[in-house]
Design a protein around this nucleic acid. Structure first.
Length: 251
DNA sequence: ATGTCCCAACTTTTGGGA
């Protein structure tokens, strides 16, 4: 089973690249974030042409998440209590998957930061109460770099969101429900950045962060055959500012 | 310190968000 997660920064702007990537890489499940679409505008037929069905939770201008699967799509759940389109769950081929788009936080003294921490805590509650008889995978844009090795220059980010103690502790609390970071199972020390700012030539300078993560049920850790970032997808014409993260599991 | 991209709208330019 191959599962990928990708913040596409507008599925409308990125549709051609996403379809090309799906055809070339053949994931069984793709978790999508920042579709920026209303549900009525979700391009179901374009995915169907490639053999995929999709479950989308959208709100229009901002946010928007989806699960796209070619191995079944059942028991869809939508959102947390905040009413924003930031979480969708589904059961695909015996795996319980979630696509999540964690609030950005904006700045440590911004109300959005408190909202981010509350959102992560509600997500932790959902995961803590999960059905333990079905293996779970949650992937998405967590807008938190778990450790200093996940950013290009920790010193440059002091006092900013994405690296603060409370955000990192919130991720650790998610893991403590019985999850492992799939990429770190295979690549414990490499940076494995997933996001580079569009500005300032950040991609070519190597100024990136690892904020797109895949957490797996700890029981699946021995089943991870590969886990990697498709950095090439950040190159070329009209890229997203995020690259996909791919996890291959022997189920 | 911010050089880009994407969206909406009192739309051909600006403001919000990332």
């Amino acid at each position: 089973m191959r599962v990928a997660t990708w913040n596409v920064n507008s599925l409308n702007a990125r549709l051609e690249r996403v379809l090309e990537w799906l055809a070339a890489n053949g994931p069984d499940v793709l978790l999508v974030q920042e579709t920026k679409l209303r549900d009525e505008a979700f391009p179901s037929s374009a995915f169907a042409d490639l053999g995929y069905e999709g479950a989308h939770v959208g709100q229009g201008q901002w946010n928007g998440v989806a699960v796209v699967s070619r191995v079944g799509l059942d028991e869809v759940v939508r959102g947390l209590s905040d009413g924003e389109a930031r979480l969708v769950g589904a059961t695909c081929g015996g795996l319980r998957v979630y696509s999540c788009y964690v609030p950005n936080g904006r700045a440590l003294d911004d109300p959005h930061y408190a909202y981010k921490l509350a959102w992560l805590e509600e997500l932790r509650g959902l995961l803590a109460a999960r059905d333990r008889s079905v293996p779970v995978l949650i992937g998405g844009d967590f807008n938190v770099a778990p450790a200093d090795r996940d950013v290009w220059d920790p010193g440059a980010l002091e006092g900013m969101t994405h690296v603060s103690g409370p955000e990192r502790r919130a991720l650790e609390a998610l893991e403590a429900t019985g999850l492992v970071d799939a990429v770190r199972c295979v690549h414990p020390d490499e940076p494995c950045f997933t996001w580079w700012d569009y500005r300032g030539g950040a991609f070519h300078r190597g100024w990136g962060m690892r904020i797109d993560l895949v957490y797996l049920d700890a029981a699946l850790a021995p089943r991870v055959r590969a886990a990697y970032v498709d950095r090439d997808a950040r190159k070329g014409t009209k890229p997203s500012d995020h690259a996909p993260v791919v996890v291959e599991l022997d189920l």
